[in-house]
Nucleic acid binder design. Structure first.
Length: 423
RNA sequence: AGAGGAGUGGCAGAGUGGUCGAAUGCGGCAGUCUUGAAAACUGUUGUACCGCGAGGUACCGGGGGUUCGAAUCCCUCCUCCUCUGCCA
């Protein structure tokens, strides 16, 4: 969430930024925050003063009791019971104000970067660059949902039987190819300096709030009611939350992690004809990279991460394009996001396979993720993450783009991992 | 899952109703000494909020309660340890 001090000091910039996101009544929302914060401070001040007085009296009573002056002690107890009543009221008021303030802040998204283009939907995203040649497939070309049946490598019906729609079963060479992609992505990230972690794929409420999935995306996560836990929608959640409530030693920066996890998304309300096959699933595999950086380095880190993702796509020899997300399509917590899309030749459309974002201090503020600067003061760090990569659409593109009359050609770099060169 | 025990500052570990944000040791930082290092000695060393400042307030696993006053007493939740049970 945004810091109140930042809102106060950069009000015009914040208003302009949030207006880019088409948020109605931005001024009113920000004013409410500022008023609540003032109220919080005033209430705190009065309460602190009362508490100071109560503390003083308590000490006096202690001293009097020791001297055996009981009667005198009883006398000043009067004042404390008055204070007690007021203080109870004040602290309830303070708590309520803090809660309202927090709630208001939770509902304000991050301020987009200056370079974020205007726009309402994915139609308005800016294409930054395009790489690789689009394959020309013959008339015999099949979309991946037919290919997986033909070669019996993924079974949706079986998944429906044991779980439900959107939970595919990978079989034989299909399963092996999944494992190959995961290992390839993990190895690439490890050689690029990312420390591998294997986090839990179930997280508590505090973690959900830490990275901003809660309360914004409450309905999009699977919830385990009897334990009040959530299935992760992305490894971003557990990995970034590793650093919740942490003051990082300067020497431990930068922090770079990679992790493979399954991801779970309810995708409520987003199903339709365009989400056939592997295009959209409830459970999918993803390798995620996460960085925690000093503020002045975070945009350099964003570039590094984008280059890493590009490197993967180049090695897989997939045609791809890079998009700068417009304000309307930008995630709630993000300042700047680049999407990577691969071309799916038989569907003749671009599929998003990675999203690389800088959150600046937005998550860190919720996480209380800080470091001690040279001036010995604690300050918030910047967090970033990106998919490197999400598997299903990569798989879809490989299947479609690399098909020929007799099968599917496995990209060179994956062969050491698959142990076969064709399906 | 049942019974018992325990959670204190970066770590170890005192503290069972007032003078305790908390002894002591270790570690960290700064300095003295030294060609340098080590040792020794001296000082310093949590976080957040409020305040221009002096300073104030809160925090001893989380939350609630008793009391003029809680690290200390009570309730509750969480976590860890031991034993019993179950189990990949």
């Amino acid at each position: 969430m945004l810091q109140v001090s930042y809102i106060v000091e950069n009000k015009e910039k914040v208003i302009a930024g949030l207006q880019k996101r088409n948020i109605p009544q931005v001024q009113d929302i920000l004013n409410e925050v500022i008023i609540l914060d003032e109220k919080r401070r005033n209430t705190q001040l009065t309460l602190d003063q009362n508490l100071a007085e109560a503390n003083t009296i308590a000490k006096q009573i202690g001293a009097l009791m020791k001297e055996g002056k009981r009667a005198e002690a009883e006398g000043i107890k009067q004042r404390t019971s008055e204070l007690k009543a007021t203080n109870k009221q004040l602290s309830e008021e303070l708590e309520a104000t803090k809660q309202s303030l927090l709630k208001a802040l939770y509902n304000i998204p991050n301020v987009p970067h200056d370079s974020v283009p205007l726009g309402n939907s994915e139609e308005d995203n800016e294409e930054v660059s395009r790489h690789g040649n689009l394959p020309a497939l013959g008339d015999h070309a099949m979309p991946h949902w037919d290919l997986i049946k033909k070669y019996d490598i993924i079974d949706f019906e079986l998944g429906i039987k044991i779980t439900g729609a959107g939970f595919p079963v990978y079989k034989g060479k299909g399963a092996r190819l999944q494992r190959a992609l995961i290992n390839f992505f993990l190895d690439e990230a490890t050689s690029a300096g990312y420390g591998e972690v294997q986090p839990p794929i179930v997280v508590n409420e505090a973690s959900g709030y830490g990275t901003g999935q809660l309360p914004d995306k409450e309905g999009q996560m699977y919830h385990i009611g009897n334990e009040n836990l959530y299935l992760i929608p992305t490894a971003e959640v557990p990995i970034t939350n590793l650093y919740r409530d942490v003051i990082v030693d300067q020497n431990d920066l930068p922090i770079k992690h990679v992790g493979f996890t399954p991801c779970f998304r309810r995708e409520a309300g987003s199903w339709g004809a365009h989400v056939r096959g592997l295009n959209r699933l409830h459970q999918f595999d993803k390798v995620e990279i996460v960085q925690v950086r000093k503020p002045e380095e975070s945009y350099q880190a964003l570039e590094e991460m984008c280059s890493h993702v590009e490197g993967l796509l180049k090695k897989l020899q997939l045609p791809y394009r890079i998009l700068r997300l417009c304000a309307g399509d930008l995630g709630f917590t993000s300042v700047l996001t680049f999407d990577f899309e691969v071309y799916s030749a038989a569907q003749k459309k671009w599929l998003e396979v990675s999203s690389v974002s800088n959150f600046e201090t937005y998550q860190a503020n919720r996480l209380k993720l800080r470091f001690k600067g040279p001036d010995k003061k604690t300050q918030l760090l910047h967090t970033l993450n990106g998919s490197a990569l999400a598997l299903p659409r990569i798989l879809a593109a490989i299947l479609e783009n690399n098909q020929d009359e007799t099968g599917i050609v496995i990209p060179e770099v994956l062969r050491p991992y698959t142990g076969f060169d064709r399906i």
